[in-house]
Computed example of a mutant assay.
Amino acid sequence: MHCQPEYKHQVYIWLKNNQTCLICDEASESGDCVCNVCETELPWLMDQCTVCALPLPMDGLICGQCQKFPPAFKHVVAPWTYSFPVDTLISRFKHQARWPLGHMLARLLGQHLHHRFDEAELSRPDCLLPVPMARKRLRERGFNQAQMLARWLSERLDIPVDEHLVLRPHETVAQHTLDAKTRKRNLLTAFALAPGAQVQGRHFALVDDVLTTGTTAHSLARLLMDAGAQQVDVYCLARTPKPGA
């Protein structure tokens, strides 16, 4: 079926002379299907923690949480804060299977990463790893949005993706329903490496849609670092601000 994630071709028709912005439905000359006005007005993440990308009043700082409990990952790259309209676009991509929206956001994330690589602000990873989804939730949704984002990024960045190196063998309660402390306990045994996984000395980038507390990313990064990884970064579409900010 052409609605399955394994389908290799375009999931929508690309009209050369009549492209419209996927956000405002107005005409767009951009190949990313977003007009210049909407792209400019997206909630771009500016001043942030240099480790976890938490929005901060000033740039170049490390947030208190990362100072007190340094995460296992080195950098988080997220172009936007999780606010309107990015939060709505991600939700429609995940929960309504609006793949063109996810594809558009992945292309813009890829552009953002290309710029960071070219400016030598960020080192290129050896491999992209999508955050695995619990089997029950995968059956309910029908696809893993992190897996799709990783595939699109892999094509744009020319970096290989490994969808089977990290496994999620145990069912866990959905993270968004838990507080930060319970999230950590929930993920203690959630992830595992595939048998024979090649990790030693490699630089990985975890791919997900949104980073909230960073607990999932930390758990996966700790698993990889303990197995001998050289470095683990996190690439995501959006970063949530601190509650109450």
Rank of each mutant, 00 (worst) to 15 (best):
H2R: 13
P5R: 11
Y7Q: 08
K8I: 04
Q10V: 12
Q10L: 13
I13A: 11
L15M: 06
I23H: 08
I23G: 02
E26L: 11
E26Y: 08
S28D: 08
E29N: 13
E29I: 04
S30P: 00
D32V: 01
D32K: 05
C33N: 12
V34K: 07
E39I: 05
E41T: 14
E41H: 14
L42K: 10
L42M: 15
P43T: 13
W44D: 02
D47C: 10
C52E: 01
C52Y: 00
P55C: 08
P55Y: 05
G60I: 13
I62Q: 04
C63S: 03
C63I: 00
G64D: 15
Q67S: 08
F69R: 11
P71V: 07
F73W: 09
V76S: 03
F84D: 10
P85V: 14
D87T: 03
L89E: 01
S91C: 05
R92P: 01
K94W: 01
A97N: 08
A97R: 03
R98M: 15
H103T: 13
G110V: 09
H114D: 14
D118Q: 10
A120W: 05
L122C: 06
S123K: 11
P125S: 05
P130E: 12
P130D: 10
V131D: 07
A134C: 14
A134D: 10
K136W: 03
R137E: 12
R141K: 12
F143N: 01
N144L: 05
N144T: 14
Q147K: 10
L149Y: 03
L149H: 05
A150M: 06
A150E: 01
S154G: 12
E155N: 13
D158I: 04
P160T: 02
E163K: 05
V166L: 13
H170R: 12
E171R: 07
E171N: 09
V173I: 09
K181R: 15
R185M: 01
R185V: 01
N186E: 13
L188Q: 15
F191P: 03
A192H: 00
L193C: 14
A194L: 01
H203W: 04
H203R: 15
A205H: 02
A205N: 04
D208R: 04
D209G: 10
T215W: 00
A217F: 00
A221P: 09
D226W: 00
Q230K: 14
Q231T: 14
G244N: 06
